[in-house]
Structure formats: structure tokens, C-alpha cells
């Protein structure tokens, strides 16, 4: 962690090699986040490129070096939300159809669909917490709000998700 912090600090000061090093440590996280939001390869790759530009330009402003990854993923989520706002219709993730099929009691596509319908804040919290296994404390620091607030958001998000899933599974999962 300390080593990573030192490299992030170098990157912040404009060292390009340090930047490439740290961006490479999180490239899969960036891609996966984009893919989970946008559901297709081309858009996810474009997102990775554009977000790399943004991270490069904004890194000077990163205040907490230890939280580079969370901060970068947050930028990716913002980017994806912008793209989704401009998109006219939802895109189904057809690759996911071919994987195992079910996540516990619901199909993956049902979960995806529910995630799509969530409000931005809820989706962001669930993505950070479950998709990236982040601690609530770290999320709170990155979003610059008290941990209690994050907990409240998380509860609200899970509640919304339950409601959306219940609507879907109402028939087949009774």
C-alpha cells in the first residue's frame, strides 16, 4: 500500500511512467465496471479510453492517494451514467447469457435488469460494495461523506433492489 501511495504521488506530480503503472493496476476494474454498466465490448473499451484521459487530466486533484482505485472507479461510474443518459434504449448483455445462468435465486439477466432500473446513487453504492468488494469506510472517504450516510444509502439500495427483483420474480419465484 505504501509503495502504491508513493507511485500515485509521482503520477500526481506528472510522472508519466508512474501514471501508466498505476492505471495498469486498475485496468480490469475499469473495464469490468464499464462492461457491467454499458453491456457491450465496444462501448466499454471506449469508456476505458475516455476515462483514462480524464484520470490523466484530473489526477492532480486526487487528494487521498491511498484511494486512487475507488476514486478512478467513481470517475468511470460518472462517465457510464452520462453515456446511459444519452442512450435511447437499454442494451442486453448477451455474453452474460452464456455464463452459468443463475446467481442464487434470480437469473443474471434479471439482476442486470434490476440494476439498470435502480437510481444512480443506489447502483453506484452496490457496484462499489459488491462488484468491487469495497469497505463502507473506504466508500465513505471517496464519496466524502460520513460512513453512516453510506450505510443508509446501501440499505436503501438493497431495499430498492429487493423490490425490483420481487416484481420480476413475483411469478416464477414464489
Amino acid at each position: 500500500m505504501e509503495l502504491e501511495k508513493a507511485v500515485v504521488r509521482k503520477a500526481r506530480r506528472g510522472n508519466d511512467e508512474a501514471f501508466l503503472f498505476i492505471i495498469n493496476t486498475i485496468k480490469l476494474d475499469l473495464y469490468k465496471t464499464a462492461y457491467a454498466y454499458l453491456h457491450n465490448r465496444e462501448d466499454a473499451l471506449e469508456a476505458v479510453q475516455e476515462v483514462t484521459v480524464r484520470i490523466y487530466q484530473e489526477i492532480k486533484k486526487l487528494r487521498k492517494e491511498a484511494f486512487f482505485k475507488t476514486w478512478a472507479i467513481k470517475i468511470m461510474i460518472n462517465y457510464c451514467n452520462d453515456v446511459l443518459r444519452k442512450r435511447k434504449h437499454t442494451v442486453l448483455n448477451d455474453e452474460l447469457v452464456h455464463v452459468s445462468g443463475k446467481a442464487d435465486s434470480y437469473t443474471l439477466l434479471e439482476i442486470e435488469d434490476a440494476m439498470n432500473q435502480l437510481d444512480q446513487r443506489s447502483r453506484e453504492i452496490l457496484t462499489l460494495k459488491y462488484f468491487h468488494d469495497m469497505k463502507l469506510k473506504d466508500i465513505a472517504i471517496t464519496l466524502e461523506c460520513p460512513e453512516g450516510t453510506v450505510k443508509t444509502w446501501l440499505n436503501k439500495a438493497l431495499k430498492s433492489l429487493r423490490k425490483l427483483l420481487d416484481e420480476k420474480g413475483g411469478m416464477s419465484h414464489v
Binding site: Y35, I111, E112
Partner: peptide, 13 residues
Amino acid sequence: KEEKNLIGWKKAY
């Protein structure tokens, strides 16, 4: 239940 579903969803990815 929701958490399990989310973990399953992440694993699929």
C-alpha cells in the same frame, strides 16, 4: 438474499 444474488452476479463477471 439480495447480497447473495449480488455476489453471484459479480462472480459471473
